[in-house]
Design a protein around this nucleic acid. Sequence first.
DNA 1: CCAAAGAGTGAGTGGTCAACCACACACAGG
DNA 2: CCTGTGTGTGGTTGACCACTCACTCTTTGG
Lengths: 188, 188
Amino acid sequence: MNTERRRQLSSAEERRETVLRTAIGAFAARGYFGTTTTEVAKAAGISQAYVYRLFPNKEALFTAVVERCFARVRTSLEEGAAQAQGSSPEAVLHTMGDTYAHLIADKDLLLALTHAQAAAVSEAAVREAVRAGYARMVEYVRGASGAAEADVQQFFATGMLCHLLVSLDAHEVDAPWSRTLSAGIRHY
Amino acid sequence: MNTERRRQLSSAEERRETVLRTAIGAFAARGYFGTTTTEVAKAAGISQAYVYRLFPNKEALFTAVVERCFARVRTSLEEGAAQAQGSSPEAVLHTMGDTYAHLIADKDLLLALTHAQAAAVSEAAVREAVRAGYARMVEYVRGASGAAEADVQQFFATGMLCHLLVSLDAHEVDAPWSRTLSAGIRHY
DNA sequence: CCAAAGAGTGAGTGGTCAACCACACACAGG
DNA sequence: CCTGTGTGTGGTTGACCACTCACTCTTTGG
């Protein structure tokens, strides 16, 4: 399975990377309180005990996952900005929205961010991570697009609507309400 | 304490009402998975065991709370629609937004809905309740305002942005990103 | 080849949770 | 006053959780 046959053990840093990557899927389903460290361990293919050697506690693990999610979103937005270089601010926002839509074709990332928002209410460390994530994101979108404040706000409001639609699996519902809320929102 | 001195016991229906009312605050803090039935019982002033006589299980309790939240929002929107009777569709939406802003001055209701959205990902019964809640809400807003599809969608996107801002206590953060996202959003 | 350092785990620990049950108390009708 | 019905609780249970520790195995480098 592994190309590197010589080394059977991974370095702790590699394992941490694996955990951060796979834990997104684990937390996506049931969020911070509903997901057990055993589930996270299973997703990463290690023992539950070793999760606690890699991360000091569950909260630190979750905030690290959240930061990883924001980093992935940010990379996606940078890709969009690069594609639309030299276009009008509105076109840049539109292209960013498009690369974002591609990114979240895998729903786990978006769901993890939804759960992070919910956990932010009671967990101070999570709240700080989510605030920092959106802070960087808003600044980046503002700077890279050069769009008006109102358009940037609109960009994020639409993103939040996407969170709802994905949480409810609205694209599987064929009803007027879901068509109204989903109108014009790209989906890959 | 109680005005009705004759009757010391409440009827089960009255107790259920009390639980539904007070449980909103309990679930608002830590959501479906993070809130214990003991906390719900304490908020309602009854024993944990009695919660299970009033509701068959935790999931049914939570979905009943979610339905109650949607009913309160709906009442608020009806109030706004009544105030703006005869105005333009845009004015009706604006007035509805205003009564909504008053309703959620108490954050518990909005936080409970945020947590419901998160729990909807993994709990089918919750997902159904949230879908039904938004379905009724979208239909009502569309019908009562007569606004264009795009304006209705925009109305709900702004509502979702409010969820984020409240979850992060963004109004306590004095930074460009929070000002950008909060611009024009009423707050009482 | 051996010893130190690091990767990784099995087997717990104390605590908490949803759900249950036997029982006590309050009230209304006869 | 007495009995049936509904209100309400203390105590418990078995499962499960976050977190710990003693321990083994693997790798590296001298």
